[in-house]
């Protein structure tokens, strides 16, 4: 199964609906995208997923929150120039 968001090939089914046969849930181990089999095509199909929301390994590396949740040791007092 291909992740609709980051195209990782290792996405897999992780859950079946408690009421048998209603839907399944899938999950990507890289970007943690989860989706239900019954959702609209733009959510479940890799080729229709909005390009602005697509993720890649390179993009993921850049996604550190700014400002950081925990600043590096001594960052506040270090001169920047």
């Amino acid at each position: 199964m291909i992740c609709p968001r980051c195209d990782d090939q290792r996405a897999a089914k992780i859950f079946d609906s408690p009421e048998s046969g209603a839907w399944e849930i899938y999950r990507c181990p890289r970007c943690f995208f989860t989706w239900r089999s019954t959702e609209e095509d733009r959510v479940t199909r890799p080729e229709l997923y909005d390009a602005d929301f697509k993720l890649s390994e390179a993009k993921i590396r850049e996604m550190i929150p700014k400002p950081p949740i925990v600043p590096p040791e001594g960052a506040a007092s270090k001169p920047r120039y």
């Binding site: 943690f32 993720l55 993921i60 996604m63 929150p65």
Partner: peptide
């Protein structure tokens, strides 16, 4: 440890970005 989280639609009526989160 941080890992991919989001995005999620927020109160201004727009999505906030996906981040490496707790």
């Amino acid at each position: 440890h941080r890992a991919v989280e989001g995005p999620f639609a927020e109160y201004p009526g727009s999505y906030s970005s996906s981040m490496l989160q707790v």
